[in-house]
């Protein structure tokens, strides 16, 4: 078994302070055996990158309810600059249909809209997180 628990950063970027969704999702993921690093809203992109790096997370979940998803492509660029492009990024919340393509093109793995069930979210993150974790813990020479 590689690396037991999947590690997920659940956070919010931009000016939107509606954090009930991110708290509920954090609890869903914990109940699905994941280790969730939870932060309050209003994180800067550079902070998300530093957290993801130090905590060595497998997945970043961005909760966006007031158009903060529009800066997710900037986050993707910043992650790549830091050498963290292996991390899976998912977005949850309100993302208009016409903007799904631009997020997907920027490298976002999954988008969970208002109708997403607990099962959808848990299964999606588990599948993504397992893939990322398995790949990263088998790469490279350790000693």
């Amino acid at each position: 078994m590689i690396g037991q628990q999947i590690r997920v950063l659940v956070t919010k970027i931009g000016f939107d302070g509606h954090d009930r969704g991110s708290r509920v999702v954090a609890a869903y993921l914990r109940d699905a055996s994941m280790e969730v690093i939870y932060t309050p809203p209003w994180q800067k992109i550079e902070e998300v990158v530093a957290l993801a790096l130090q905590e060595d997370v497998d997945v970043i979940g961005i909760s966006s309810l007031a158009s903060d998803h529009l800066i997710v492509p900037d986050l993707m660029d910043a992650l790549e600059d830091a050498g963290l492009e292996h991390i899976g990024v998912v977005v949850g919340g309100i993302v208009p249909d016409k903007e799904h393509t631009s997020l997907k093109n920027a490298g976002v793995a999954r988008i969970f809209g208002p109708g997403a069930s607990r099962e959808d979210i848990v299964n999606g993150v588990t599948e993504l997180g397992t893939r990322v974790r398995t790949a990263k813990l088998s790469e490279g020479d350790f000693i």
């Binding site: 914990r30 939870y38 932060t39 957290l51």
Partner: peptide
């Protein structure tokens, strides 16, 4: 119950994030 956890200590240490 699940073996999972919510790691929230960073919530209070936000000023050192970056």
């Amino acid at each position: 119950l699940s073996g999972g956890s919510i790691l929230g200590d960073r919530t209070r240490m936000g000023e050192h994030n970056a």
